[in-house]
Amino acid sequence: MDETGKELVLALYDYQEKSPREVTMKKGDILTLLNSTNKDWWKVEVKITVNGKTYERQGAVPAAYVKKL
């Protein structure tokens, strides 16, 4: 869990989004888990830093590609 009490997951593999509802992640990324009720796809929040600014993006990733921490 992070400092706000939200559950975290670890990306076990790289994943490139294939639709606007998904998010890209790299192996080793730590993501915030938002919903894991679907056994195949979990909704997560990814933090992306671009030019020193951090953005948050929500989307789905394959459940088999992440592990709860």
Rank of each mutant, 00 (worst) to 15 (best):
Q58L: 06
W42G: 00
P20R: 08
A63N: 02
K6D: 08
K6S: 10
V46Q: 11
A11R: 02
K43G: 07
Y65P: 01
E45I: 13
K27P: 02
S19K: 05
A63K: 05
E17K: 13
K67H: 09
S36K: 08
V9P: 00
D2I: 14
A60M: 15
L69A: 03
T49W: 10
E22S: 05
Y13Q: 12
G5H: 14
T37G: 09
E56F: 15
Y65G: 04
N38R: 08
R57A: 06
V50C: 12
M1R: 13
A64N: 11
V61N: 02
Q16N: 13
E17C: 12
I48K: 08
K18M: 10
K6C: 14
G5S: 12
A11T: 02
V9H: 01
Q58G: 03
T32Q: 08
T54W: 07
W41L: 03
M25H: 02
V66C: 14
M1N: 13
L12C: 12
Y13I: 08
T37N: 12
Y13W: 10
E7M: 12
A63P: 04
Y13C: 15
G28P: 02
N51D: 13
E22V: 04
E22G: 13
E45S: 15
R21P: 04
R21E: 14
Y55M: 10
K6N: 10
K68E: 05
L31C: 06
A11P: 02
K67G: 05
K26D: 02
L8Q: 10
D29H: 04
E3M: 14
V66Y: 04
G5Q: 13
A11M: 03
T49H: 10
Q58W: 07
E22T: 07
N51A: 10
N51W: 05
V50F: 09
K18W: 04
A64I: 10
V9W: 05
Q16A: 12
N35Q: 10
L10F: 08
E7S: 11
S19C: 10
L12G: 00
K39R: 11
V50M: 11
V44L: 02
M1D: 12
S36P: 05
T4A: 12
E7H: 11
Y55N: 05
E17L: 07
L31R: 02
V9L: 09
S19P: 04
K47M: 10
T37M: 10
T24I: 05
Q58K: 08
T49L: 11
S36I: 07
E22Q: 10
T32G: 06
L69K: 03
L33N: 00
T37I: 10
V9A: 09
K39F: 08
M25F: 11
K43Q: 15
D29Y: 06
G52F: 05
M1E: 12
K43I: 15
V66R: 00
R21D: 15
D2E: 13
L34P: 00
K39V: 10
N38C: 11
L10Q: 09
G59V: 06
D29V: 05
